[in-house]
Measured scan of single mutants.
Amino acid sequence: DEVTIHLGDKTIRVDGLDKELLEILKELARRGADEEELRKEIERWER
Rank of each mutant, 00 (worst) to 15 (best):
L7S: 04
E37M: 12
K26R: 15
E41L: 08
G16M: 11
W45Q: 01
R47M: 13
K26C: 03
G32H: 02
L17H: 06
R13H: 09
E36N: 08
E2N: 11
H6R: 11
K19Y: 09
R13M: 08
L28G: 00
E37Y: 07
I42A: 02
E41P: 00
E41I: 10
E43L: 13
D34F: 04
V14Q: 03
I5T: 04
D9M: 05
V3L: 13
V14M: 06
D18Q: 14
A29Q: 06
L21Q: 03
E27W: 08
R30K: 08
R31L: 06
K19C: 05
E37C: 09
E36A: 13
K26Q: 14
A29H: 06
I5R: 02
V14L: 15
T11Y: 04
L17E: 02
G8C: 08
L17K: 07
H6S: 13
L25R: 00
E23R: 15
L7F: 11
W45L: 02
D1V: 12
I12P: 01
E23D: 12
I5W: 00
L22V: 15
D1R: 07
I24S: 04
R44L: 09
R39I: 11
D18T: 10
E43N: 08
D9N: 12
L21A: 01
R30C: 03
L21V: 02
I12M: 07
E23G: 08
T11A: 11
L25Q: 00
K10T: 15
A33T: 03
E46A: 13
E35P: 07
D9R: 03
E27F: 11
G8E: 07
L25M: 02
V14S: 03
E36M: 13
I24H: 11
V3I: 14
V14T: 06
W45S: 01
T4C: 11
D1M: 11
A33G: 05
V3A: 14
L21K: 03
V3H: 13
V3T: 13
R47L: 15
G32R: 02
E2I: 14
G8M: 06
T11C: 05
D9Q: 06
R47E: 08
D18W: 06
E27M: 15
D1E: 12
K26Y: 15
A29C: 07
E35T: 06
I5N: 03
L17G: 04
E35R: 03
W45I: 01
R39A: 07
E2F: 14
I24P: 00
R39N: 04
